[in-house]
Structure formats: structure tokens, C-alpha cells
Write a protein that binds this DNA or RNA. Structure first.
Length: 645
RNA sequence: GCCACCGUAGCUCAGAUGGCAGAGCACCUCACUCGUAAUGAGGAUGUCGGCGGUUCGAUUCCGCCCGGUGGCUCCA
């Protein structure tokens, strides 16, 4: 029915138009948008819709372009549909399942008589290119569920039937392009031709609905952009990430290794990695003392009864290794440090006057991880947590959380991480019974986490239902030099362990009270953090962390005595220096030092011997003017202090 | 654990229809004494991931296992 309506362009003018045959596209054109070539969709009153959507009442509009965040998601989702069409055309009998856009591209899961492999991808790509060239429109329609079920049944698409049945909607939307019809909420691009650059990246197995008891499907991953240049940039970034891969750089630079002889997921820290780890640990300890922590140590194994009391044997056993028999008694290797710290707490009666207690330990724990999930230093079976437990009175909790946040931000910044993603995980309000502890405790705990975050003006995402059963938590992910996010920090309330271990303190009133307990790891684990550091810096560590800060390169054998003197001067002042006095060309030695990413190359020849100076080459290729050794030492000391460069 | 792919010298990689396994770099020796990313010559290097099977003969074919990579799932 025709009527006169008013449409507004967000942040701009409005016009009166007739609603007769008014699509989103026409409405945008009426509002003076002429860049329709790059339109992915349109936001109507804030809701993202196809540009073909009919507008029948006054509305606020906003164009969504293919190169915007939201536009890209749509483009990739549409690319998934195109891929599905291509696969169906090439492999008769294949069944389609689901195919969404994801953070970094898109995928589609297929059920076929054989899994797809990398050799199939070029064929699929050229078929997709063909479909894209045809510039087929995506046509949306809404059909009653039973009709849709009949349709997909007739196509043999049993997974789609299952999806519609589970939706239990009266009407579902379907999208058709070319010969391919898919159940889909949309929105989609106006037509396939808008996908101007795409690439199928890899194949993988994936369970139907992520459930390992269900069918194993064959998943194809791809990436798509609105233009070729963006795709090229993306592929270049992948290359860059590959160059920084800690699994490659670590062994190459002799930092660490993982070897078959020892076992998967178990890390050998080589001397250079060990040097870095020592620096991290020393710094960590120093900052923890400053923040009012005490350091404790605990053993690697403990009696079965301890793990029974803590609940680990009931709730965590699948992550624990089999018990070992010691003189007829069972002991377990620890997957966590908490029971030990609690046992220290319980070694005598505690007064409210001594709280809060903050006990930190670089505690090495062992957890069973399924072989398929192991990944370099980032996911291992034995790792050292920078763990601590805080035991405090309820009235102290907010300051304690704040203290944790301040310490973690200070540490992370010192290591060169300035961007974070903060998540606050709270109870699922619908299923409170799932969790231990009463409402009052949860509200108090959550309130203290929120207050601390707000007092430090940290923006965070609230995640309902993501809390562990024993308490709410804050998780922090850091962003590295390539913008990738890595989980490190976790600050968790624990309502269950104080109960289980019957922990108490004597209050002002002379009565026993239950302490609050917070479990926190700030860097997460040393292994993972080291892996992240390697990738963040591409193993070109800042001077304070560099395992070798200076290498002395001689030009001829005549310079060796001066080189030895220099080495001694540097080493005596605490500079980590090495020598390369081999009878080789300078350029040869420079090249080698460069590949080792050593920050300072000190070059000494006859000139330097005469003047008593050093010539310094930086790893970025620049030279410093000749200077006396003391000046170099001051420079290094200063950089170590500032943790810069 | 499951699905796909992969495993040849310390590293990067060739190789053969089943018949004594190769290159470059690294390593060792010698010569060169040299000024900012590779000096030259020579030498040594392997249970061809492991075990079993087929075969006159297996690194190659088959089976099982171990390990790695990308995912699923899970997580510091």
C-alpha cells in the first residue's frame, strides 16, 4: 500500500518519499547516496538488512559498505554461500551444513563421502570465481517452516532439516543465488559480484555442532575482501606472522626446544631462553615484593587426600595425571598450586590482624592436555604459573582486586603490552544453582570486580554465564605487535576452597570467620608468556630482556687483546656481552650477529685501539658515532632501566 | 582424542617403477688478517620418525605406533 513516509540518513538530512516500491537501495539513493557499487547492506533503524528490503514506514537509514567491519562480515558470509554453491556443483551428493562468517574470514562445513583436502581447493576456487563473475543476485524469501523442511528434504539436505526443526519458527528465511538455496538469516550482499577478492585457505575436520559424539564434517576455510589489495595485505600479514612464529624462532635462536625424547608439551629452556626467564622472574619477584606479596614454594606432588579435599579429584581429574605409588600411598603431581598455599595458611590459627595474606609462587604444574591441542609454548603439559593466592577479609577485597589490576597492568606495560581486552565473567542469572556460594557472596564479589575495573577506567566486556562454578573472574588478553589477542591474566574469586578446607581467621569479635580467597596469575604462565613475547618482538628483544646485549667483533687478530679487555669491562659492569674474534670478514660476522638479533654490535679495529673508542652498529643497521666504552655502558644501563628499545 | 596433511643430515629441501641416499647452509681442517648481512679449498655427517609385514632385496608398497601442522573440543 502506498503512503508517504519520511526517511532520514543518519547524521544528515531527511526527505519525504512515497513508500511505493521503496527498497533500501532506492531509499538510500533518494537520500543522495550514490556510492551504491560498494553497498553491502543497509541499516534500517539500526538493524542491518539487505538493500532489497522494502521500506514501508518512516525510518532512519544508514548505508553499510563492503569495506566496513559489518560489511565485510556480510561479504564473507555471502562468500561462504558462493563456496557452498561451488562445492555442490563440483561434488554431487555433498550435503551442506552451516557456513558462517568468522572473525577472520568464513567457513562452510560439508558432509561428503570423503573429506576434502588441499588439492580440492583450486578447483573450488575457480568454480567460485565463475559464480562471482556471473554477478548473481542473492534473493531472500520467507517460507513457512514445513514448506522449507519439505524443500530441503527433497534436496537431501538433512542437516538443514534438522536446523529448521530445532529453530521451531513458523517462518524461516532462505536465500537463493544461482542454483543454490540455503537456510539463512541473512543479510547478504546484493549480488555475488561484490566479492572482488577471495582465497580458500585450508581444510579441517569439525564435528557437527561442535559435538565430538556427532558426525565429523569437512570444513573449508576461506577469506574474502572487497578488493584485491586488502587480500594481499592480509596474506602479507600472514607471512609476517609466520616469520614471528615462536615455534620457528625459539629453536632457531636457541631459546627453547620441545623434543620427542622428552615428550610432547614439555619444554626445554635452553641457556638463552633461561637467561630471559631469569630476568622475567627476577623482575616479577621484585615487583611482587613491592606490591606487598610474600614468596612461597611448594612441592610438585601431594597426597591423594589433599586433592580429594580440594575437589580436584572430583572435578578436575580428567586434567590430572595418574597417581604414583609411594610406599603404598597414592600421590598426584599437581595441576594447581592452591591446595599447598591453603595448607600453609592452615598451619596455624590466623588473626584478622594479619590479613590480607598475599602469597606468590612461580609454581610449576602439570595438566593433561589432549595431544591435538598442544601448540608450541602456548599450550603445553607442564608449565609454570606466576601464581598467587590472596586471603583476606570481606572488607579488604576491593582494594585487593585493585592491587591485582595495578600490578598486572604495570607488569604487562613493562613488557611492552599496552592494549588489552578485559572480560568480566559472571554467573548465568538463569542458572544460579550451578554455582557454589550464596547470592550475597556473588554480588559482593562481582561488585568488587566491577568497582576495581571502573576505578581504573578499564573498559571491559561483561560475559554472563562465563564464570567458573566457584566464583566470578576477570580475564585480560593482551594485544601484540600484530594486533593479535592472547589470554594471560586471570583474577578469580574462589568460594569453594575456603569451605572445603575449612579455612578460618579469628575476627575482632573473637569468633571464627571465613576468609575470602582470590586466585590470580598475571602473566599466566611463563611458557605461554615467553611464546607471546617472542612473537611480539619477533625475537628482537628489548635490551633489558636480550639474552646477549652486546657482541664484540674484531677486524683482525691484532685487535683481540683490546677485545678481551672490552669484554671484561662490559661483563664486569653486568652487561651481557659475547665475543666473535674469529678470523673472518667483518661482514660475515655482522651478518651472523644480525641474524641472532643482538641489539649492539661493537666493532673494533686498529682505529678503535688507537683512540680507545668503540664503534657501535645497532641491529636496525644504523651506526652510532665512535664513543668511549663507558658511554656505551651508560646507554645500555639506561635502556635496561627504562625497559625500552 | 577425532578429521585432514606431513615426517629424508643440525637447518632448508631434492630424490628413486623396490637395487650402495643427494644439494645448499651449518659443522670440522687448512689458507687468507680482511671495516658494517655470506672469502676460498678440502673433510665428516644419516637406523630416510619407530616397529612389524610383503619381497631375493623396503627409505620407497602394506599395517600399526610415535611425533608435528591446521582445525573441532578445551584452556594458563
Amino acid at each position: 500500500m502506498e503512503k508517504n513516509i519520511t526517511i532520514h540518513l543518519k547524521g544528515s538530512a531527511s526527505v519525504a518519499v512515497s513508500s511505493q516500491g521503496l527498497s533500501g537501495l532506492k531509499a538510500l539513493q533518494a537520500l543522495g547516496i550514490d556510492n551504491t557499487e560498494n553497498l553491502a547492506a543497509v541499516k534500517i533503524n539500526g538493524e542491518i538488512k539487505d538493500v532489497s528490503t522494502e521500506i514501508d514506514s518512516s525510518a532512519k537509514l544508514e548505508p553499510v559498505y563492503v569495506d566496513s567491519q559489518e560489511g565485510l562480515q556480510i561479504l564473507r558470509h555471502s562468500a561462504a554461500h558462493v563456496m557452498a554453491e561451488a562445492v555442490k556443483a563440483l561434488f554431487p551428493g555433498v550435503k551442506v551444513t552451516i557456513g558462517p562468517a568468522i572473525k577472520d574470514g568464513f567457513y562452510y562445513d560439508f558432509d561428503y563421502k570423503r573429506p576434502f583436502d588441499a588439492n580440492d581447493l583450486p578447483k573450488i576456487e575457480s568454480k567460485m570465481a565463475e559464480i562471482i563473475r556471473k554477478d548473481l543476485p542473492f534473493i531472500r524469501s520467507e517460507v513457512p517452516s514445513d514448506e522449507a523442511i519439505e524443500f530441503f528434504k527433497s534436496q537431501g539436505e538433512t542437516y538443514k532439516v534438522e536446523l529448521i526443526e530445532d529453530l521451531s519458527e513458523e517462518v524461516v528465511s532462505i536465500y537463493k543465488q544461482g542454483n543454490f538455496t540455503d537456510l539463512c538469516r541473512g543479510p547478504h550482499l546484493p549480488s555475488t559480484g561484490k566479492i572482488r577478492a577471495f582465497h580458500l585457505t585450508h581444510v579441517a575436520g569439525a564435528y557437527w555442532r561442535g559435538d565430538e559424539t556427532k558426525a565429523m564434517l569437512s570444513r573449508i576455510y576461506g577469506i574474502a575482501f572487497a578488493d584485491q589489495e586488502s587480500l594481499n595485505t592480509y596474506l602479507e600479514n600472514l607471512e609476517e606472522a609466520k616469520k614471528r612464529d615462536h615455534r620457528k624462532l625459539g629453536p632457531e635462536l636457541d631459546l627453547f626446544s620441545i623434543q620427542d625424547d622428552v615428550g610432547p608439551g614439555l619444554i626445554l629452556w635452553h641457556p638463552k631462553g633461561g637467561t630471559i626467564r631469569t630476568i622475567i622472574e627476577d623482575f616479577w619477584r621484585q615487583e611482587h615484593y613491592k606490591a606487598g606479596y610474600d614468596i612461597v614454594y611448594s612441592p610438585h606432588i601431594g597426597r591423594a587426600k589433599l586433592w580429594q579435599t580440594s575437589g580436584h579429584l572430583d572435578y578436575y581429574q580428567e586434567n590430572m595425571y595418574s597417581p604414583m605409588d609411594i610406599e603404598g600411598q597414592e600421590f598426584y603431581i599437581k595441576p594447581m598450586n592452591c591446595p599447598f598455599h591453603i595448607t600453609i595458611y592452615r598451619s596455624r590459627i590466623r588473626s584478622y590482624r594479619e590479613l590480607p595474606l598475599r602469597w606468590a609462587e612461580m609454581g610449576t604444574v602439570y595438566r593433561y592436555e589432549r595431544s591435538g591441542v598442544l601448540h608450541g609454548l602456548l599450550r603445553v603439559r607442564g608449565f609454570t604459573q606466576d601464581d598467587a593466592h590472596i586471603f583476606c577479609r570481606p572488607d579488604q577485597i576491593e582494594d585487593e582486586i585493585l592491587n591485582c589490576l595495578d600490578l598486572t597492568l604495570h607488569l604487562l606495560r613493562s613488557f611492552g603490552f599496552y592494549e588489552y581486552e578485559v572480560m568480566l565473567s559472571v554467573r548465568d542469572p538463569e542458572r544460579k544453582k550451578k554455582y557454589i556460594g550464596n547470592d550475597e557472596m556473588w554480588e559482593m564479589a562481582e561488585g568488587s570486580l566491577v568497582n576495581a575495573l571502573e576505578r581504573r577506567e578499564l573498559s571491559y566486556r561483561r560475559e554472563e554465564g562465563e564464570a567458573v562454578f566457584y566464583g566470578p573472574k576477570i580475564d585480560i588478553k593482551i594485544k601484540d605487535a600484530l594486533g593479535r589477542a592472547w589470554q594471560c591474566t586471570t583474577i578469580q574469586f574462589d568460594f569453594t576452597l575456603p569451605e572445603r578446607f575449612n579455612m578460618t581467621f579469628i575476627g575482632k569479635d573473637g569468633q571464627e570467620h571465613r576468609p575470602y580467597m582470590v586466585h590470580r596469575a598475571l602473566l599466566g604462565s611463563l611458557e605461554r608468556f615467553f611464546g607471546i613475547l617472542i612473537e611480539h618482538y619477533g625475537a628482537a628483544f628489548p635490551v633489558w630482556l636480550a639474552p646477549v646485549q652486546v657482541i664484540i667483533l674484531t677486524i683482525t687478530d691484532r685487535n683481540i687483546p683490546y677485545g678481551e679487555d672490552l669484554l671484561k669491562i662490559l661483563s664486569d659492569t653486568g652487561v651481557r656481552a659475547e665475543k666473535d674474534f674469529r678470523n673472518q670478514k667483518l661482514s660475515f660476522k655482522v651478518r651472523e650477529a644480525q641474524t641472532k638479533k643482538i641489539p649492539y654490535m661493537v666493532i673494533i679495529g686498529d682505529k678503535e685501539m688507537e683512540t680507545g673508542n668503540v664503534t657501535v652498529r645497532l641491529r636496525d643497521g644504523h651506526n652510532l658515532p665512535p664513543m668511549p666504552p663507558t658511554e656505551l655502558i651508560d646507554r645500555i644501563k639506561n635502556e635496561v632501566k627504562l625497559k625500552s628499545a
